[in-house]
Simulated scan of single mutants.
Amino acid sequence: MSGDRILTGLSLRLLAVMLLTFMAVLIKLAAAHGARLPEITLFRQFFAIPVAMIWVALGPGLATLRTTQISGHITRTALGVFGINFTFGALLLLPLAEATAISFTVPIFATILGALVLKEPTGWHRWAAVVLGFAGVLIVTQPGTGHIPLAGALVGLTSALTVAVIAIQLRQLGRTENAGTTVFWFSALSCVPLGLVYPFFAAAHDATTWALLAGVGIFGCMGQIAFTAALRFAPVSAVMPMDYSGLIWATLFGWLIFGTLPGGWTFVGAPVIIASGLYIVWRERRRGLPASPVVAPTEEADAERERGVEERRPAV
C-alpha cells in the first residue's frame, strides 16, 4: 500500500475524530439549552438518515440498502440504542475530556470479550495490558475522592463495554452487509423505539436548540463516514493511534467552549489507558492476528471490510 494512501487514511481518521468530538460538544450544548437525553438520541439518529442516504446514493447506489439480514440489523439496533444512551449519558454526566478518556477502554473490553466469547487466544501480555488499562481508569476516576461523579464513570464504562459487544455482532453482520447499509438501517430502525419514548420527553425548543440537535445527527453521521473511508486506505493498526487525538480535541473544546480543563489525574491516567490500547493492537499485529474490529471507539467498527471495495464511492 502506497504511502499516499496511508496518509489519506490517517487524515480521514483524524477528521473523523474531530467530527465526533464536535458532535459530543453539540450534545452538551443541546442539553444546556434544555434538550433531554431521549430527545438527543432520537434526533441523532433521525438527522443521520439523509446523510447516510446521500452517501450511499453517491457511492454504490440506493439499491444496496436492500438487505436479507433484517434480523441482524434489529439485533444491532437493540444493542445500539442501549449503547448510544450510555455513550451520550456519559457525555452529559462527565467533563468532555474525562468522558473521552474513559471511552478509550473499548480495546480493553474487546480483549476480554474476545477471550471469553470468541475464544480467541489471549496471552499474559494482553491480560497485563488489560490490567494496566483498568489501572489507568482508576487513576482518571479517583473513586471515593469525588474527583468525578462515580455514576458518570460507571455509565462511561458501560458505554465502552457495549461498544465492544456491538462490534462482535457487527463482525458477523459485516460478512454480508456494507457499512453504508449498516449505518442506514441502524439509524432508521432505532427511530422506532426512540420515537415511542419521545412523546414523554418532547418539549418546545428555540431555533438554536433545534440547530444543535440537527448538528448532532449530521456531524455524528459524517464522523462515521470518515471512520469508514479511512479504512479503505489504511489498515486498522495504522489508523487506530489517530483515535487518541480525541483527547486533544476534547481538552481544547472543553477549554474554549465550556471553560473547563481536565484534572491533573486525567493527564496521568489517560496516557496509561492509551498505552494499554496501543499495546493490545501492537501485540495483535506482531502475532499476525487480524486487528480487532473494536480497537476504536466507533459504531462502525466493521468498516475494515470496506477497504478496496466499492471503488465507485468518491473519497469523503
Rank of each mutant, 00 (worst) to 15 (best):
N85E: 03
L92V: 11
E39N: 09
F201Y: 14
A48V: 05
S71T: 12
L58E: 13
L92S: 04
E98D: 11
A35I: 00
I27W: 00
G3V: 09
A153V: 05
S292V: 03
H125F: 09
F253P: 00
L247T: 09
A230T: 09
T64L: 08
L194R: 08
F219L: 11
F184C: 06
G72D: 10
F233C: 12
L62S: 07
I274Y: 06
A128Y: 02
V17T: 12
G83R: 07
A97F: 07
G288I: 15
G152N: 02
A203I: 08
E311P: 05
G215V: 09
I168E: 01
G259C: 01
T209F: 01
M53Y: 03
W265K: 01
I148Y: 13
R285G: 07
M222H: 06
S11C: 11
A315N: 11
L231R: 15
E39H: 08
L79R: 05
F186S: 06
A99C: 04
R313W: 13
R232G: 14
A31T: 00
N178H: 15
F186Y: 13
P149V: 08
G259V: 00
A48R: 04
V137P: 01
V17N: 05
T228Q: 15
A129R: 04
L96R: 04
R175T: 12
P290D: 15
L256W: 03
L189K: 09
A296P: 11
S190Q: 01
T266I: 07
